[in-house]
Design a protein around this nucleic acid. Sequence first.
DNA 1: AAGTTGAGCGTACATTTGTACGCTAATTTA
DNA 2: TAAATTAGCGTACAAATGTACGCTCAACTT
Lengths: 205, 205
Amino acid sequence: MGVRAQQKEKTRRALVDAAFNQLSAERSFSSLSLREVAREAGIAPTSFYRHFKDMNELGLTMVDEGGLTLRQMMRKGRQRAEAGGSVIRISVDTFIEVLESNPNVFRILLHERSGTSAAFRAAVEREIEHFISELAHYTEAQANRTPELARAQAEALVILVFNAGASALDLKRSERKALADQLVLQLRMVATGAEALQQKMDNRT
Amino acid sequence: MGVRAQQKEKTRRALVDAAFNQLSAERSFSSLSLREVAREAGIAPTSFYRHFKDMNELGLTMVDEGGLTLRQMMRKGRQRAEAGGSVIRISVDTFIEVLESNPNVFRILLHERSGTSAAFRAAVEREIEHFISELAHYTEAQANRTPELARAQAEALVILVFNAGASALDLKRSERKALADQLVLQLRMVATGAEALQQKMDNRT
DNA sequence: AAGTTGAGCGTACATTTGTACGCTAATTTA
DNA sequence: TAAATTAGCGTACAAATGTACGCTCAACTT
């Protein structure tokens, strides 16, 4: 890669990072202005356009990138689970850790999921869908579920986890422990219930 | 109430209604400007302040009012369920109807739940909490659950329902049917799972 | 009847925003 | 080496926003 392309990439990163850094509990992506992001990245407002068509394009980039980061981290955590122990417990703990080290990635996904732009909502849904289908395949193989049931189960699990994540963002570290415990209980409910429904169906035939 | 107070109340309503009417899939509350709302309500921008300290105060009013509306409608629907039939199925159908006739009430709750203002998030959480505790009490009595388990179950149910609601807002009527079916399945999972966990606990003693 | 209150208005202003346009200077290409 | 490309900048402008201020006049109070 030439010197020029390298520098361009660097500036682009600066923009993405600037945007991520400006996110907080009080500041959503859609409340950021192009000028603010450019200012934080240390470039002139008009230079922004050399990298993104508009703020929307930057936001979609962030969603994609964020979703990828999250999935990579969760996958790493899953390897821990293979060493033995409760899959649910370990996954929840991993999730909380991921959440704590990437709160802003999480925030943009959560907020734009119910956001004002169809493109954003679709992008977030796509990321969540990745989680769901990974999990559904896992469960289908592991627990011998009907595809339909596996899908419904996986979706329920992911939704509960994400929602707990949203709550966790507003909690102190000490309160997060209780939240995690309650989440584990709920996930067990779903898993147990899915198992029971599956057996009922199997016995019918 | 005097003529004067009556007129004031009327204008206040016009403001609240104007704000609700401007909400849509493409327009969130936080993207509304004070001037837009005033314009739609047919008053001068500066007159807005005779009714609300700022847009924040208007928004909180809308959340409270919206939550109340939703709960009243769901309660009415529950009476239908008492006539017999699956509680879950009837509740889900009621919910979809409520959603369809009040999409904007729903939108503001969903969006501000992950919003940028702590006051908003707290207000929405309060409304959701109402749903959860109503349901938890119902389950505790009906199905003889531990308070802890009843709470976890109720929370899981409400979260799944709200999330399905968020998805439903983006769907055509025909696709909503499938969504409702999947939701029913998930709710049954939780209910069945909770029952199984409860029995396991009971047998331990 | 006289005085007070307050809802609604119009004017005004400082800020912030997105973006069009044309320039510069360094890198890349030929 | 000469020509072409392009990242980044500065200037400029129209549009929109929140809100301060002071006025009016109908409704209420005394």
